[in-house]
Design a protein around this nucleic acid. Structure first.
Length: 956
RNA sequence: GCCCCGAUGGUGGAAUCGGUAGACACGCAGGACUUAAAAUCCUGUGACUGAUGAAGUCGUGCGGGUUCAAGUCCCGCUCGGGGUACCA
């Protein structure tokens, strides 16, 4: 029988499972290697062919590393908490755990069909109490920690309270990463009650409760983190998002901004991904400056107004000030005459959704408060305005406006007729702001004549000397909002006593997710957990009703795989010491500003606590591209458009369409793609890609596809109906979903694996196109025939010594495959196998000494067929335990090289010369050759360039 | 707008360090085997000139440049993809 992939694959998958082939031990003499995939969210739709792309790549690498003698950790699990299961639960009343379990089982089955070498013993699921036990445990640690900028690490809150007792918070305001708050002394602290103390400590804790402006999504009934909002809409579902002030749990990830930035330097990640993280963290260097308010004392603003700027050099160009609509000093600054107008504006700004704000970025709006700030150097009166182009969350929520050198200030100034004052020479400020940072300072007293860079330094110096402010670094990164008003997530290990939050003690963990009667908020608008009976501690204190967000469970899962069954610790010290960090992490770039930042932060925190031994979790990261769908279209005649078309082109009618049909205009008629005029009178409609072959429509199958297509007619070209094609997202509604199960059923897992790799570089996004899969399938069939007799299924590999040529092919291939695998170029590796097989079949080679090492090389790519060959050769252990063949140069070195000889860079002839010749000897041999004489025509060359084993170029 | 990445035959792509562009595969055309089909095998396949030969010219989005030599490096564009967006 020919290559029977179904039998082979079923046999080996069962074998691997029975023999625990891929079970990994935490103790080994071998060096370790940790290959990790981003674990999937098990959606109801199951896997499509795009999902396994990264898993195949990482599996190849894991198997390859095993062959190299590494002890490889290659686990898989499920990011099981998430919105879709909960939305489904709301609609159907079915518990999300049931849906999730069902989806996980389906995912696991689909993954196993592809033949991955996962150690399923280590599987984790974020919704499993044994797992979220440790998510809650880490949260408690975050709660009881603060960040010291001096020590550059997280510290326990016991040290914090000691210091507050001893010295108040004056020194801590500088040293600690904290929310803005008032200064107090040790005596004040002693006088504060418990509630006040708890509130103050919240300003320091790494997991803290605060009133924050949050992204509130009314449709989902929950708040969202910044990375979960895309273009002002929720990432999941695409619902509108509003800004709202709410009491929420947050993680003080901003404390780690600089370390998250610095850490990138040590990582082997793609430049584009590092750049994305850098932009997201958004470090900017500048100064914080205090502006006095005119009659400030009378207004209760003797402290003045603090602003942040990255351009202190332009301070003499300030012509007005702008506050964000949420600014705390607005009430104090607003004069009675302006009160009505200011209130109206603030009200307007507050009720705008994020989407509205973003859509109308260019719309200028604002209002004058009636008050004036005083220029710190000139004493000039600067009107204080309010506008929504100044953001509450960044800097101090207030700016000094330099219309001449900032395009937003410029727009604002032009709109409200405010002065524009140039202080850096260059550009044409009549037309637009001059934002470029080259040019010398003008109209700026002591800065005049300096370049921008020097002027910034000089001004910062001056500001600090006069006590007006200080140099300051700001980050765009915001603290991560950590509460979700949702059911299907980890409960917080928090209870409230007299309104003060306390953490549960460790022995009360895990705090189990309770049962509820409905997965909706309560009538009072409380989150679903408020519906749970007895949602309180044993002592009757109410528990937190919010749950944690999706990124909570995914932030430390890579650590849990190291020691998944440990019920005393997240990960034991031993296991962590052995596995260290993930050596290779494969996943989509869409997690650049979410999971990959949170996870690095989480890891750094655990590192500070001494719980893990590496500062960074993922040493090398590879982003696999997305596989898009390739949709097919049929073109349905739009009869109205057709009639119009006929009026314009009386001769342009299609054959086969009778006047009767046009008059009745009720027949479904589809026109093949290349019929002239088609675009003018046809509407494209999606066709299921499984009804086409090479864009040729199976018209009979199409008629049966949907009931109303039964009587459809077709206008063919050359007897066939050709469909159009377009690359789109893979989605059910576009009928372009290719399912791995179907491919495996038809061609086998080995073909699917190799084909997905053959499609192109792993990092690249590309449309799925089944067209080329036959080529890979043919290769595997041919490989099979080289090793087995098709009639008897018996192995035909011979024991005879391979020829020199055969050894050359083998070793060339060993080198190519190992090099390509090492540099993640799996597509060229697959080509390498094909070339080797083509060459060997030309030699009619069926030698064991050649195919045995080839099978080992092939095993990461097509493990099932490789195992079958390995077994047929009499080995009684899985090929996973084989040793990777080593490339030996002696079989492939040539003793001569065929030099391309060019004249003035144009190739004229090839010349075979011994490899041992020196460049001078090569030059001599070439110039003295008969062929050269023809091109030299007696002339003496000006120069001869000889690059050994490359080229000879004669310059005439 | 800003940042990053890309553009190579009919198609997916290869060319790893500046050195014979188009490997490998698909598709297409022709052929062998077959009653036929499937499967398999063989040949051809960047464009143009030439006779279908020999041979030659052009050719890696566009325009310049560096170099004996450029898909690869530099400058200026065009188009496409991704990220980000009043971040002061």
């Amino acid at each position: 029988m020919e290559y029977d992939f179904r039998k082979i694959e079923a046999y080996w998958q069962e074998y691997w499972q029975k023999n625990q082939t891929f079970k990994t031990d935490n103790h080994s003499d071998k060096p370790k290697f940790y290959v990790l995939d981003m674990f999937p969210y098990p959606s109801g739709a199951g896997l499509h062919v795009g999902h396994p792309l990264g898993y195949i790549a990482s599996d190849i690498f894991a198997r390859y590393k095993r062959l190299q003698g590494y002890n490889v950790l290659h686990p898989m699990g499920f990011d099981a908490y998430g919105l879709p299961a909960e939305q489904y639960a709301i609609q159907t009343g079915q518990h999300p755990a049931i849906t999730t379990r069902k989806n996980i089982e389906r995912y696991r089955r689909q993954l196993n069909l592809i033949g991955f070498s996962f150690d399923w013993d280590r599987e984790v699921q974020t919704c499993d109490p044994a797992y979220y036990h440790w998510t809650q445990w880490v949260f408690i640690r975050l709660f009881h920690s603060w960040y010291s900028k001096k020590e550059r690490k997280a510290m326990p809150d016991t040290i914090l309270t000691e210091r507050l007792e001893k010295e108040g918070n004056a020194s801590l305001l500088e040293e600690a990463a904290c929310s803005a708050h008032d200064v107090f002394s040790a005596q004040d602290w002693a006088a504060f009650d418990e509630k006040k103390r708890s509130e103050i400590l919240m300003n320091y804790r790494l997991a803290f409760l605060s009133d924050t402006m949050v992204n509130w999504c009314p449709k989902l009934g929950t708040v969202l983190a910044n990375d979960e909002v895309v273009n002002g809409l929720s990432e999941r579902g695409g619902y509108p998002v509003e800004r709202k002030l709410m009491k929420q749990w947050s993680l003080r990830i901003t404390a780690y901004a600089q370390r998250l930035l610095d850490g990138l330097e040590t990582l082997d990640w793609s430049d584009s991904l590092k750049e994305m993280q850098r932009n997201w963290i958004g470090r900017s260097v500048g100064a914080e400056v205090r502006f006095e308010i005119e009659n400030g004392a009378a207004k209760g603003l003797s402290e003045g107004l603090r602003i942040f700027t990255t351009r202190p050099d332009t301070l003499f160009g300030v012509s007005f000030m702008v506050l964000c609509p949420e600014h705390e000093n607005i009430a104090a600054l607003t004069t009675p005459e302006q009160k009505a107008e200011v209130e109206a504006y603030v009200h307007y700004a507050r009720n705008r959704t994020e989407r509205e704000r973003q859509a109308e970025v260019n719309k200028v709006s604002g209002v004058f408060t009636g008050s004036y700030a005083l220029h710190p150097f000139t004493g000039e009166k600067l009107p204080v305005w309010i506008s929504e182009y100044v953001l509450a969350g960044y800097g101090t929520g207030a700016i000094m406006a330099v219309a001449a050198h900032d395009s937003r200030d410029y727009r604002f100034a032009r709109h409200f007729n405010l002065p524009v004052r140039q202080v850096v020479a260059g550009g044409d400020i009549e037309k637009e702001a001059y934002e470029t940072k080259d040019g010398t300072l003008i109209n700026s007293r002591f800065l005049d004549g300096l370049c921008v860079k020097d002027a910034i330094a000089r001004m910062v110096q001056e500001i600090e000397a006069r006590g007006l402010g200080k140099a300051q670094i700001n980050y765009r990164l915001r603290d991560a909002i950590f509460s979700r008003q949702r059911y299907w997530g980890e409960p917080f290990p928090i209870y409230y006593k007299d309104g003060i939050p306390h953490t549960l003690s460790d022995d009360k963990l895990p705090l189990l997710l309770p049962e509820v009667d409905k997965y909706l908020p309560t009538e009072e608008g409380e989150p679903p957990l408020a519906r749970a009976k007895n949602w309180q501690t044993e002592d009757g204190f109410p528990l937190e009703t919010c749950t944690m967000p999706g990124f909570a469970g995914s932030s430390a899962y890579y650590l849990r795989y190291m020691d998944p069954h440990n019920n005393r610790a997240l990960v034991s010290e031993d296991a962590n010491k052995y596995w260290q960090q993930v050596d290779l992490y494969v996943g989509g770039a869409e997690h650049a500003t979410g999971h990959l930042i949170y996870s690095r932060f989480w890891n750094k925190f655990l590192f500070d606590l001494g719980l893990v031994c590496q500062d960074e979790p993922y040493r090398k990261l590879v982003n696999q591209g997305m596989i898009q769908g390739r949709s097919n279209f049929a073109y349905r005649i739009n009869w109205t458009a057709y009639k119009e078309f006929l009026e314009r082109n009386p001769q342009g009618g299609l054959p086969g369409i009778t006047a009767e049909m046009v008059r009745k205009a009720d027949k479904l008629l589809f026109v093949s793609k290349n019929i002239p005029g088609r675009e003018a009178f046809c509407d494209p409609v999606h066709v299921d890609i499984h009804l086409t072959d090479n864009d040729v429509l199976d018209t009979e199958a199409f008629r049966k596809w949907m009931p109303d297509l039964a009587g459809a007619g077709f206008i063919l070209e050359e007897g066939r109906y050709i469909c159009g094609a377009e690359v789109e997202k893979m989605s059910k509604s576009m009928y372009n979903v290719e399912n791995p199960d179907q491919i495996v059923e038809r061609y086998g897992a080995d073909t699917l694996r190799m084909y997905e790799m053959f499609l192109g570089p792993v990092e690249q996004s590309k449309p799925w196109d089944t067209k080329g899969i036959e080529g890979v399938f043919r290769f595997l069939k041919k490989f099979w025939r080289s090793c087995f007799d098709e009639e008897t299924d018996s192995c035909i590999l011979e024991e005879t010594e391979p020829s020199k040529e055969e050894l050359r092919i083998l070793h060339k291939t060993i080198k190519k495959i190992t090099d390509d695998t090492e540099r993640f170029s799996f597509n060229t590796a697959v080509s390498g196998f094909m070339i080797a097989l083509n060459e060997l079949s030309e030699l009619k080679c069926h030698k064991k000494a050649v195919f045995e090492p080839l099978a080992i090389l092939l095993s990461p790519y097509a493990p099932h067929i490789a195992e079958e060959i390995w077994r047929a050769l009499g080995h009684d252990q899985s090929i996973a335990y084989a040793t990777l063949p080593v490339y030996e140069e002696k079989y492939t070195v040539e003793n001569s090289f065929n030099y391309p000889v060019s004249f003035n860079g144009k190739m004229r002839f090839n010349m075979e010369l011994p490899i041992a010749l020196s460049p001078a000897e090569i030059e001599k041999a070439v110039l003295e050759s008969e062929q050269a004489a023809k091109w030299l025509e007696g002339k003496t060359p000006k120069k001869v360039i000889v690059v050994p084993k490359r080229i000879v170029n004669v310059v005439l």
